Deep mutational scan, measured.
Amino acid sequence: MSIQHFRVALIPFFAAFCLPVFAHPETLVKVKDAEDQLGARVGYIELDLNSGKILESFRPEERFPMMSTFKVLLCGAVLSRVDAGQEQLGRRIHYSQNDLVEYSPVTEKHLTDGMTVRELCSAAITMSDNTAANLLLTTIGGPKELTAFLHNMGDHVTRLDRWEPELNEAIPNDERDTTMPAAMATTLRKLLTGELLTLASRQQLIDWMEADKVAGPLLRSALPAGWFIADKSGAGERGSRGIIAALGPDGKPSRIVVIYTTGSQATMDERNRQIAEIGASLIKHW
């Protein structure tokens, strides 16, 4: 067993022997301040990774656009098919120029040779490549099948209805392509620590998230040296922004954090800054 596999296998073990965790309302004060600064709703939840206990939450059962955070769930569904012998990570998928959609920095470079399922998941999570996500959605049967996968996990809230990039439209009061912070946090925890996926697939999923290259201005910008984070960000229309993450000190994750916002007129930089400040408060009061 590799060191990384050992780390993920012992996530519940280490967490069980940690000192009790206590909620700190100071972080919620910052979440509410972010709402004021952005002029928009902000949803927040913080779960203990081992027990699933909610440590703090704000608007945990209000719907927010998922945006690209759905790509972690998508690759979880792909990995479940791999575990069941219905898919192979090494299978190569070929596609054409007509398949390319807006923001496809990886797939646009491989029109000639195609990409493997493993490479597509890596591109979808680490670079948020939209064509990679659409190609992977095709392998599982489309958005409705991802929703069905989530329902089978016990998540009857999260739903995907459309493809990239239309799913980022974020129309107010439109339930399409949305989740709730509580539902997303619980589902992410199941994917990373539950028995739904094999140990190898859980490790692969967290490795992809740990290698995320496009979430630097968010929670990662607030992390002290030595902290662990595996995350996936999302951005959408109407001032929408979000991030889902597993993080913790001492090089291992111990909490799940989900943050979503929508309806702001603020710039992307300002949305990023507010999420980073929430992260800084979380870490300060850990």
Rank of each mutant, 00 (worst) to 15 (best):
E26C: 14
V31C: 04
V31L: 13
V31Q: 05
K32F: 04
D33F: 14
A34D: 09
E35F: 09
L38F: 01
L38W: 00
G39W: 03
A40S: 06
R41E: 15
G43R: 08
Y44V: 07
E46V: 10
E46F: 12
L47S: 02
D48M: 07
S51Y: 06
S51C: 01
K53W: 04
K53Y: 02
L55N: 05
F58M: 09
F58Y: 01
F58R: 05
R59V: 04
P60K: 08
P60L: 03
E61W: 05
E62V: 07
F64L: 06
P65E: 10
P65L: 06
M66H: 04
M67V: 15
M67C: 00
T69M: 13
T69D: 12
T69A: 09
F70A: 15
V72Q: 00
V72S: 07
V72R: 02
L74S: 01
G76R: 03
A77N: 11
L79Y: 03
S80V: 15
S80P: 10
S80Q: 08
V82G: 02
D83K: 10
A84G: 05
A84S: 06
Q86N: 07
Q86A: 07
Q88E: 07
L89H: 03
L89T: 04
G90P: 02
R92T: 14
R92H: 12
R92P: 08
I93S: 02
H94T: 04
H94G: 06
Y95E: 14
S96R: 07
L100C: 07
L100M: 14
V101W: 00
Y103F: 11
S104F: 05
S104L: 04
P105H: 02
P105F: 05
P105Q: 02
V106L: 11
T107Q: 04
T107N: 02
T107M: 07
K109N: 08
H110M: 01
H110L: 01
L111T: 07
D113C: 03
D113N: 06
G114D: 13
T116H: 07
T116Q: 04
T116E: 06
V117K: 03
E119H: 01
L120W: 14
L120P: 05
C121P: 00
C121G: 00
S122Q: 12
A123W: 08
N130F: 13
T131D: 02
A133I: 06
G141T: 02
G141H: 00
G142Q: 01
E145W: 13
E145T: 14
L146T: 02
L146P: 04
L146K: 00
F149Y: 14
F149W: 11
D155V: 12
V157I: 14
V157Y: 13
V157S: 13
T158W: 15
R159F: 07
L160S: 05
D161T: 01
R162K: 00
R162S: 00
W163Q: 14
E164N: 10
P165V: 00
L167M: 00
N168I: 05
N168C: 09
N168G: 00
E169R: 00
E169Q: 08
A170Q: 00
P172N: 00
P172I: 06
N173S: 10
D174F: 08
E175T: 04
T179M: 15
P181W: 00
A182R: 08
A182N: 06
T186E: 07
T187Y: 00
R189G: 14
K190V: 14
K190M: 13
L191K: 10
L192A: 08
T193P: 11
G194T: 11
L197E: 11
T198L: 03
L199G: 09
L199E: 08
A200E: 05
R202N: 02
Q203W: 02
Q203P: 02
Q203K: 12
Q204T: 12
L205S: 07
D207M: 06
W208G: 07
W208K: 02
M209R: 06
E210Q: 09
D212P: 15
G216T: 14
G216N: 10
L219K: 13
R220L: 12
R220Y: 10
S221T: 14
S221I: 15
A222D: 15
A222L: 15
L223G: 02
L223E: 05
P224G: 04
A225T: 07
A225Y: 02
A225M: 13
G226I: 07
G226Y: 04
W227A: 08
W227V: 06
W227D: 08
F228V: 15
F228Y: 14
F228E: 15
I229K: 13
I229S: 10
A230R: 12
A230D: 14
D231I: 14
K232E: 13
K232Q: 11
S233W: 13
S233M: 15
G234H: 05
A235I: 15
R238W: 05
R238C: 01
S240V: 12
R241N: 11
G242T: 02
G242V: 05
I243V: 08
I244H: 09
A246P: 09
L247P: 11
L247T: 10
G248F: 07
P249K: 10
P249E: 01
D250A: 09
G251V: 13
G251R: 11
S254H: 06
I256C: 13
V257G: 14
V258P: 06
Y260I: 11
Y260E: 08
T261C: 05
T261F: 09
Q265R: 09
M268Y: 13
M268N: 13
M268E: 15
M268F: 11
D269R: 12
D269I: 13
Q274N: 14
Q274Y: 13
I275K: 13
I275M: 13
E277H: 10
E277I: 05
I278N: 15
G279C: 15
A280W: 11
A280R: 12
I283M: 14
K284G: 05
H285W: 02
W286F: 05
